[in-house]
Amino acid sequence: MQAMRWDDLQFFLSLARTGLLAAAARQLEVDATTVGRRIRRLERELGGQTLFVQGRDGHVLTEAGRRLLRRVETIERETTAILGGDESSGEAIRGRLRISASEGFGTWLIASHLGDFAAAHRHLAIDLAANTGFLDPSRREADVAILLARPQRGPLITKKLTDYRLRLYAASAYLDARGPIGSSADLPAHPMVGYIPDLLYSPELNYLDEVRTGIEAQLRCSSINTQYQLIAAGAGIGVLPCFIGDRDPSLARVLPEIVITRSFWLVTHQDSRHLPRNALFVAWLSALVAQQRGRLLGETGDRPPPA
């Protein structure tokens, strides 16, 4: 261990967290060949130990690799504290933090406030993957993930972040033109907006049957932000999280007795949960969610009237 170069360990750390040579290379601003060469040199310096095996989805840590990762992350934490001074102030936090979140939560909750977090921790580089799908913290694709369901396996630390509610929404102009909707029996007469069933990235998004059994969407797309745009444009009626639908004063709730509840789960890898940047973000996000709980549950005073 004494003969090893710290920068070789940085290459190891990046590949362990991304699982892909190309992704590690982008993170380190080198080419993939260089990453592979540095990993092989590190393995030689460790007496020929194999740190990774090539799997179908990328590079997977061996048992020797997992042991080294625990030691390297300990070194990383200690180095951060030494270089940064008072860690409790947040000024010590350095490195790159990768966050994975659903498109809606990432866009409408995290992105709306992430600038403040970044400004308070200017030595921290942040990746926000907010899209239709999740990065897997068990494979080190993300440092922190906000998921729609609790993972059932993997070396993960999981806790419930918050419940959130979804309701039916339509543009007020659409309702003015088409008339009020008195019950769910009226819905088949209207174009419904929803997900493409075979492209759902989480079964928790399959909720139209909770609105009315057997109802199908006429306008389907894989993106919740695109669904919001369709509803706001008056294309039809659809289900949106309250933290999206209630933000737009041009939208009105439809059939207020229909309320769907889902949950967000906060997930980190068990070996990296104590990294200062991870712990800092988790604390910040938990505080943000507590502050925004009214929006998440659709209980804010600025919500539109039901139609």
Rank of each mutant, 00 (worst) to 15 (best):
S202E: 01
F52D: 00
E141L: 03
W6N: 14
A3L: 08
R277G: 01
L288Q: 14
I215V: 15
Y207W: 07
A24M: 08
G90P: 00
Y207C: 13
I75K: 08
E63Q: 13
D198Y: 04
P304S: 15
Q292L: 14
L69A: 15
F52A: 02
L251A: 02
H269K: 02
A32N: 04
L69I: 07
E103L: 12
P180Q: 10
S223E: 04
R140L: 15
R40N: 11
A92D: 04
E216H: 08
D176A: 15
D246F: 02
R139I: 08
S88V: 08
A145L: 08
Q218S: 15
L51R: 02
A307K: 01
I231G: 01
T62W: 07
G179T: 06
L28I: 08
E210V: 03
D127L: 06
I146K: 00
L199F: 10
T18D: 01
V35R: 03
D209E: 11
A16I: 11
F134W: 07
D163K: 09
W284T: 00
L109E: 01
G84V: 07
F52P: 00
D186S: 10
I75M: 14
R253K: 06
L51W: 03
T300R: 09
A129L: 08
R273N: 09
L51I: 12
L175T: 01
M192V: 10
Q54S: 14
L83G: 14
G55W: 04
R41C: 09
D248M: 03
V60E: 13
G294W: 01
I146C: 01
V193D: 00
A145P: 02
I82Q: 12
V282Y: 05
L109K: 09
Y207I: 12
Q2P: 00
I75G: 14
F11L: 11
E43H: 09
P188T: 06
A185L: 12
R122V: 05
G238L: 09
Y169W: 04
R277H: 13
F281D: 00
E141F: 06
P241H: 09
G182W: 03
T261L: 11
D198G: 07
V53I: 12
I157M: 12
I126R: 08
E43T: 11
L147P: 00
E204H: 09
H190N: 04
P151V: 07
S202G: 03
R66D: 01
K160H: 07
S183W: 02
Q270G: 13
L240P: 04
P188V: 10
R247T: 13
L42E: 09
R293C: 08
D116G: 15
H269I: 10
A177Y: 03
D7W: 05
A92M: 04
L161W: 03
I126E: 06
G301V: 09
D86L: 14
F117W: 04
D7T: 14
I39M: 10
S183M: 05
P191H: 13
D116W: 04
L20Q: 14
E204K: 10
V267L: 05
S138E: 02
A101N: 01
D198K: 01
G58M: 08
A283Y: 03
L148D: 07
V211A: 00
R178T: 14
P203L: 09
N131H: 11
E141N: 07
R5M: 14
Y169V: 02
